[in-house]
Design a protein around this nucleic acid. Structure first.
Length: 229
DNA sequence: TCGACGATCATCT
DNA sequence: GATGATCGTCGAG
């Protein structure tokens, strides 16, 4: 049912038959190989759309489908924590090999989940939003929600996603190969179904603030604000 | 040691 | 659309 829902969301208005925008690449989800992450951040960010993000916590599994990401290009990117080669206790994680987990606290309140990539040193991809696939009850409890809220209320934003998946800095510097966090290929999202735009909340970054490094599944209701595409 | 600020969110109007 | 919450991080002194 979830897969059908996604396919409907991926329908491309201009494509006859509607399925041109999505193709099933794996019936049985498979873990992403290390080579997947060892590419430029923008490429990884785009290809992560449609993948499954698994979180195992307290003996239970929570799963979301990735529907929104942002690429941070590292040293040459003023919006990146690794801009100009900055190395501090916090940013050290960004320089780990591709496929590592980078979690940091923002605004003193919220955690943000990233994965390191190839390309320039310090490059990474921020997970901005997911579509719940399994473990919605646990997510709601972690979020402190009474019942099922509007779409996007659970995992429609980087802070919400981390809270729903019980992700904090305890996971920082780990790897996306289980048991706590895992990424699996599942559905490839066609170019026609991908919206691109400038990244959120980086107005301070000068020219880099306008780089189109935000990626989302076009029209998916779980994509965070500001909506675009 | 100190001060300014942030890859956000919920709750207001 | 505006605002307050809340504290780790980092650069300046």
């Amino acid at each position: 049912v979830r897969r059908m829902t996604l396919v409907q969301q991926l329908r491309c208005p201009g494509a006859a038959g509607g399925f041109a925008a999505a193709r099933i690449v794996a019936v049985v989800p498979s873990p992403l190989p290390a080579a997947f992450f060892a590419r430029p951040a923008a490429t990884v960010a785009r290809d992560l759309l449609g993948c499954l993000l698994l979180r195992r916590h307290e003996g239970r599994e929570r799963v979301v489908r990735v529907v929104e990401t942002e690429a941070y290009l590292g040293v040459p990117d003023r919006a990146s924590h690794a801009w100009a080669g900055r190395r501090t206790a916090r940013t050290e994680t960004l320089y780990l090999p591709p496929g590592h987990i980078y979690v940091y606290l923002i605004y003193g309140l919220h955690h943000c989940l990233n994965v390191t990539t190839g390309g320039e040193p310090g490059a990474a991809v921020l997970f901005r939003a997911g579509e719940p696939v399994a473990g919605e009850e646990e997510m709601g409890r972690s979020r402190g929600l009474a019942g099922p809220g509007r779409e996007g209320a659970l995992t429609g934003g980087p802070g919400k996603l981390c809270q729903a998946l019980a992700i904090d800095r305890a996971l920082n510097a780990g790897r996306f190969e289980g048991p706590e966090l895992e990424l699996r290929a599942d559905v490839a999202v066609g170019e026609e179904a991908i919206a691109r735009g400038p990244r959120v909340g980086v107005d301070y970054a000068g020219e880099a603030a306008r780089w189109p490094l935000r990626f989302a599944v076009r029209g998916n209701p779980h994509v965070s604000r500001p909506r675009f595409g």
